[in-house]
Design a protein around this nucleic acid. Structure first.
Length: 834
RNA sequence: GGCCGGGUGGCGAAAUGGUAUACGCAUCGCACUCAAAAUGCGACGUUCUCACGGACAUGAGAGUUCGAAUCUCUCCCCGGCUACCA
């Protein structure tokens, strides 16, 4: 009987599908477990990264099912997005056609891999039955003030005629046509994620332990909370002032100039009438041209130009020249920075370059007194405040608090918290996305659609422009509409949503994906959430995971979700899997170092492909795809096949771990039984506690190796046969989550009627793990000097005496005095001597 | 510059204070074969020794400990993410 993966895998895939083996009921007496992987973008083909991601998740799903959980394991398609439009342009087709064809193909690929999904729950985000609920959320968000319109600078590709998301700008160039990206002011829709900044930050604590530490750190850094103060600097000959955010208000007495961003709103007013107008404008224009490209690599040379105007330091009344500087970001803080050259490196470089004064305001205790004339770099360290009026002599940390209080008392400013996190721009000038359900009426202004008009369908009978422009603004049939409020003629918003919006709630829809009257049933969501295990690439560590966290909080506050603790955070545990590399580099079409999963399945079968992905490395780490590696996995699968087929009919049909101590009379049988139970323990712990699938598989390999070694001897003994039968069945059961098809087939060949899908994870026997003799390691002064076999029940004294009597130990103790004999139970004896 | 991950045989990797190198790959030997492939069995860190046995090995160096790949400190190298954040 030859191993024929193609035939047998198809057979079992059909069997599971017909039986509905992986359909998961909403109601069950069993405890729930929600196992989720990041759903794929239907780009055309499944790649190895997907295979790895989903193989990991499938092991978890199977394992939890075998442990008695009611496991929700769904899949779907993140189906809107720009690549569909690009492909449509290139291949002269329609994004919808392209997308649905890809989904079709990729679905069949996933089915060939035999993943245990509940396919009834499949969702595609480009389906109006999906995005209509998103439109409903947005109407509620709008009413709640969580969604608002604002003019903002955007990444704009002049050649493609569209806004680009930050992640579509590569080194300052458009990812598609490589034109330099410009900044363009556009009126856009924003979600007020900043309202949730503090909660998003605080709730990261709830994820401690369940999420990788580095992802938590990345999110914290991304949100970038800074605590400090806002100080007002009055502008000379003006009733205006420049607010400045700083975390170092303790250095304010060292401020000698003011620098503002080129895009600062008060710039024109500041330069008016100074005679510096043209110099400043020339500088600003230059900056806008070089701007985007210079953001890479080493920090740019500090440059600036004097505006001709001054402001006043409210603490010491000194005049500070106002400069426009290239290192001041308009999007962070207030777009103005007080220049403290003595204590900030950027300000120091700037001051040196333009000969601006340097004044020391903090003197660290452990270095000689600072002298501006001899300083070669800024000194940001803590210390005692100097030259600081009544604050002089204070420790700077205390000074920070005193100054902040003083600011508020005198009305010169306030305590302030600043975030790096921006509100989320969800508008895209693209076609292939969810229409924004907003209408512009000359009479009523900005009006949200009526709920009963949803979904606002994306028209499919349009042609995407060759230059990538959305056809929606040229489609009267779409944008011409009646005002939901007054019934007059109105115009529909033609922008669509960022596709990250769809992926921010798909995991909620899975719990009730067939619901035609609501996005999801509250009870169902409450029952299934949070996701118990989420698995995906670390590239989504910030955006997708942050947006999803925000989304459940926003939905809660709009009463779409109940306000229960279980729903505070959508993903209780997160596993970020590493990449599949080839030749040490990320697989990519342009490098030509890709491996097509379908080809590998044709050649080796799905079980082998899955096994290799799981065996090659622990899941968090990157691994290299190698031909010899997958050959090795294939060899093991074949070895298992031959072994089981050879033993079928010669051994009794037993359940996993069924052989008893009475069966294991031969020493070899006892050894095998011990290995069998040890493998159950190790495999279960490796899967459940550590996601160490590589070592879990290794322990099953050890079991198989031992069965090979002892089978001939055990076949001659009735008890031995039972131990073999038990061990083989344990092997198949343990491997089932990894290589389900071959395990089911071999189970059937052995003659066991109940499918593995209906069998529990085996339970090992603590007694079966212990041997009657133990190997004790002998050391002298911590160095290995021998080993002895002792009875498992030997007492401490007996073991120590045996150790001291060992000839090699005696030899090494010659001329030494024994000081101490250490005994580590069942492990070693260390004789300390000198 | 900042943050994170990593450095162990020829290679992927095990071992998280107690036998370093499990498991797999590659290589070599033996068996089977007319032969090869496949398969099975065995060897496999370096080095000294005929052997028994010893010395040295987890990026480098120090420390803690009876005992360190593992804990602490100093440093080097590789990879990733992020970056003028006031």
């Amino acid at each position: 009987m030859k191993y024929n993966p193609r035939e047998l895998e198809g057979k079992w895939q059909k069997f599971w599908e017909d039986k509905g083996s992986f359909q998961c009921p909403d109601e069950s007496p069993r405890p729930k477990y929600y196992c989720l992987e990041m759903f794929p973008y239907p780009s055309g083909k499944i790649h190895m990264g997907h295979v790895r991601n989903y193989s990991i998740a499938d092991v978890v799903a199977h394992f939890k099912r075998m442990q008695g959980y009611n496991v929700l394991h769904p899949i779907g398609w993140d189906a809107f997005g720009l690549p569909a439009e690009n492909a449509a342009i290139q291949n002269n087709t329609h994004p919808a056609k392209w997308t649905y064809a890809n989904i079709e193909h990729m679905r069949s690929q996933l089915k060939r891999l035999g993943f245990s999904y509940d396919w009834r729950r499949e969702v595609a985000t480009c389906d109006p039955e999906y995005y209509r609920w998103e439109q409903l959320f947005f109407i509620k968000f709008f009413e709640k003030g969580l969604l608002f319109r604002k003019k903002a600078a955007q990444n704009w590709c002049p050649r493609c005629n569209t806004v680009l998301a930050n992640e579509q700008v590569e080194e300052g160039l458009c990812w598609r046509c490589e034109s330099p990206v410009e900044q363009k002011e556009l009126t856009q829709w924003f979600l007020r994620i900043t309202d949730y900044a503090q909660e998003l930050l605080d709730d990261l604590e709830k994820l401690e332990g369940g999420w990788p530490e580095r992802v938590l750190t990345m999110q914290r850094n991304w949100m970038g909370k800074s605590i400090g103060a806002e100080i007002r600097f009055n502008i000379e000959q003006s009733d205006k002032f420049l607010p400045v955010f700083t975390t170092r208000q303790d250095t304010v007495f060292g401020a000698t100039f003011m620098s503002i961003a080129a895009a600062h709103p008060l710039l024109e007013e500041i330069i008016a009438g100074t005679g510096q107008e043209s110099a400043v404008r020339t500088f600003v224009n230059q900056l806008q041209k070089t701007d985007t490209r210079e953001q890479i690599g080493e920090a740019q040379e500090k440059e600036g130009v004097f505006t001709g105007r001054y402001c006043t330091n409210p603490f010491n009344g000194e005049r500070m020249p106002i400069w426009v500087a290239n290192f001041v970001l308009s999007g962070y803080g207030t777009g103005a920075v007080m220049g403290v050259p003595a204590h900030d490196q950027r300000d120091f470089e700037f001051a040196k370059k333009y000969s601006l004064p340097i004044r020391v305001a903090i003197q660290p205790g452990n270095i000689p007194p600072l002298d501006p004339k001899s300083m070669i770099e800024a000194v940001p360290e803590a210390g005692v405040m100097v030259n600081s009026g009544t604050f002089s002599g204070l420790n700077n940390e205390e000074g920070k608090a005193r100054l902040a209080a003083y600011l508020e008392e005198k009305g010169l400013g306030k305590r302030s918290v600043n975030w790096r996190l921006r509100d989320w721009n969800v508008s895209r000038q693209r076609y292939w996305g969810t229409p924004i359900p907003i209408v512009y009426c000359d009479k009523c202004g900005v009006v949200p659609e009526k709920e009963e008009n949803l979904p606002i369908r994306l028209p499919l009978d349009v042609v995407v422009h060759q230059d990538g422009r959305s056809p929606l603004p040229d489609t009267p049939k779409f944008y011409e509409c009646t005002c939901p409020r007054c019934g007059g003629r109105a115009r529909r918003e033609t922008d669509t949503f960022d596709t990250f919006v769809e992926s921010s709630w798909y995991f909620l829809r899975y719990t009730d994906s067939a619901n035609r009257s609501a996005a999801f049933d509250k009870d169902k969501v409450t029952r299934w959430l949070p996701v118990d295990q989420y698995i995906g690439g670390v590239e989504h560590a910030i955006l997708h995971l942050l947006y999803s966290r925000f989304f459940v909080k926003a939905l809660r506050d709009c009463a779409f979700l109940p306000a229960v603790e279980a729903l505070d955070e959508p993903f209780a545990n997160l596993l970020t899997q590493g990449m599949v590399l080839m030749g040490g580099k990320k697989m990519s079409k342009s490098k030509g170092n890709t491996v097509d999963p379908s080809e590998m399945i044709d050649r080796y079968g799905a079980d082998t492909v899955r096994l290799f992905c799981l065996f090659a490395a622990p899941p968090e780490r990157d691994f290299d795809w190698t031909e010899s590696g997958i050959e090795g996995a294939y060899r093991f699968v074949n070895r298992l096949w031959r072994l089981t087929v050879e033993l079928a009919g010669k051994i009794p049909v037993l359940n996993a771990c069924e052989a008893s101590p009475a069966d294991a009379t031969l020493p070899r049988a006892r050894e095998l039984r011990r290995k069998e139970h040890a493998a159950v323990k190790k495999t279960g712990e490796d899967i459940a506690d550590r996601f160490q699938f590589n070592t879990a598989i290794a322990s099953v390999m050890e079991l198989v190796n031992l069965i090979y070694l002892v089978k001939d001897e055990l076949l001659a003994d009735e008890g031995g046969k039972r131990v073999l039968g038990s061990s083989i069945f344990t092997t198949l059961t343990l491997l089932f989550p990894f290589t389900p098809h071959i395990c089911e087939e071999l189970r059937e060949i052995l003659g066991a009627p109940l499918p593995l899908t209906e069998r529990p994870w085996p339970t090992y026997n603590e007694d079966a793990l212990s041997a009657e003799t133990l190997t004790i390691v002998l050391q002298v002064n911590g160095k290995l000097r021998g080993k002895i076999e002792v009875a498992a029940d030997a007492g401490e004294e007996a073991v120590k005496n045996a150790a001291l009597a060992d000839p090699n130990i005696q030899k090494h103790l010659q001329g030494l005095t024994v000081k101490k004999v250490l005994y580590v139970r069942d492990k070693l004896v260390n004789v300390v001597a000198d």
